[in-house]
Structures are given as C-alpha cells and as structure tokens.
Simulated assay, not measured.
Amino acid sequence: MTDPSIADLSKDAAARAAVALVEPGMRLGLGTGSTAAVFVRRLAERVKAEGFSLRCAATSKATAEQATSLGLQVEELDEIGWLDLTIDGADEVDPDLNLIKGGGAAHLREKIVATASNRMVVIADQNKVVEQLGQFHLPVEVIPFGWQATRTLIQRALERLSLWPRPILLRKRGEEPLRTDEGNLILDLALEAIPDPEALAAELSAIAGVVEHGLFLNICQLAIIGRPDGSVVTLRREDKE
C-alpha cells in the first residue's frame, strides 16, 4: 500500500503544475475528488496572490462549496457556456489517456463539463497510471426506477463481451445506497480488466436506465502525473494536441 504522505506529495506536485496552465479570465471546469480538491486549493492561492478573475464551473456540489469557500467565482455551466479548460483527477489513466472516473460519484457531471471544454487535463499520482483499464471498479450511474432490471441488462452486456461472471456492486454510504448529486444510484463493475473499452462503453450507453458510465474515452488530451519529489511527468495524446 502506498504511503499516504507520498500520495499527497504526488497529488500536490500535479496540482501545482496544472495551476500554471490557468490563464487570467479563463472559463474553467473544476473536477471532483482528492486530487482535484488539492488543485482547487492551489488555484485559489494563486488567484488571491495575483488578483485575477476566473469563471468556474464545478463538477459536484462538494467542489462548488470548496471553491466558493476559497473565494473562487463559481457559476452554473449553462451561465458560462463553453469552457476553455477543465482540470480533473482520474481513478485510472491508460497509455492512450483513456480514463476510469467516478470514484467520487461525480462522473456524470464530470463528463458533461469535460466534453463542454476545449481541453481536458487530468492530474494524478503515478499509481493511477495503468497499462490496461479495469482494476479500479467501473462506476455506472443508473436511475433508481427499475435499477435491478438495469443491472440485469448490464450483466447481459458483460456476458456478450465475455466479461462475466464479475460482481456488480451497488455502492453504499454506510447502510444506505449512495445517491449522486442527481439523486441516482451507482453500480460498480468489478471487472479486473477491460480489453476493449470502446465496445464496453457502447454497450453500457445503449442500456435503458444507464445515465452515464465512468469510461472517459478520447476526452483527455494531457495528463500530469505527480511524483513525491515534486516533479511531474506529462503524457500527451498527440492527435489532440
């Protein structure tokens, strides 16, 4: 298990490097999760020190509350319109910069914000970089009505892709099912490996009751991977740069 202090140093290194990408007056998407929270804090410090303004769209209520409490200007995405840049974390990043996101139960809003941006940049520690997606549970947000029928349809999709039998877990907070900011449920797919992310994404997106899945494919253009010594490694998707 990674030393928490090492992970924190890595996250801070990535966050600091990402803050340098922000330009005064930008329309900026703010991600959700532990690494994104470090970025928001470092961003607020820079904005306060340099005295410039930004228009920020948050991907969750938690991020909006944090950013507002630190003095950042947070607006609804529809008020801002299109974004210049979104900076967010990820649960897994593969060599093609495809992602699994949703560990923080915000992947629906995260995907909306990311795809409403000219550019998406991911910040992460080096433990999030993988050769193949799937070790981290893949979150699938579903509406509460008929969710068990939706689960059955997901199972059948996994069978078609030879990804069954694998557990499909209803995410809980304590004893109760976790509810997203939109009031939905999350089913976590414990797949261990996803050989064909595109095929799985297409299958999940076609299921009635599935609101959004945590596969972010061909969305991220740059990943900034932090190291404990304060340095970073950047991974680029050349066709998007």
Score class of each variant (00 low, 15 high):
Met1Pro: 12
Asp8Ala: 15
Ala14Pro: 11
Arg16Val: 12
Glu23Pro: 00
Pro24Gly: 01
Thr35Ser: 15
Thr35Asp: 12
Thr35Ala: 15
Thr35Phe: 07
Val38Ile: 15
Glu50Tyr: 10
Ser60Ala: 08
Ala62Trp: 01
Ala64His: 03
Thr68Val: 02
Leu70Glu: 07
Asp78Cys: 02
Glu79Met: 00
Glu79Ala: 14
Gly81Arg: 03
Thr86Asp: 03
Ala90Asp: 10
Asp91Arg: 04
Asp91His: 03
Pro95Thr: 05
Leu97Ile: 02
Ile100Gln: 09
Ile100Thr: 11
Gly102Trp: 12
Gly104Ala: 10
His107Pro: 11
Arg109Thr: 14
Lys111Ser: 10
Ile112Met: 15
Ser117Ile: 08
Arg119His: 14
Arg119Trp: 11
Val129Asn: 03
Glu131Tyr: 04
Gln132Lys: 11
Gly134Thr: 06
Gln135Tyr: 05
Phe136Ser: 09
His137Ser: 14
Val142Leu: 13
Pro144Asp: 05
Trp147Phe: 15
Ala157Ser: 15
Ser162His: 09
Ser162Tyr: 02
Leu170Asp: 08
Lys172Phe: 00
Leu178Gln: 09
Arg179Lys: 15
Leu187Trp: 12
Ile194Thr: 09
Ile194Pro: 08
Leu200Pro: 10
Ala201Ile: 05
His213Leu: 04
Gly214Trp: 11
Leu222Cys: 11
Ile224Arg: 06
Gly230Ala: 07
Gly230Ser: 06
Ser231His: 09
Thr234Phe: 03
Thr234His: 06
Arg236Leu: 12
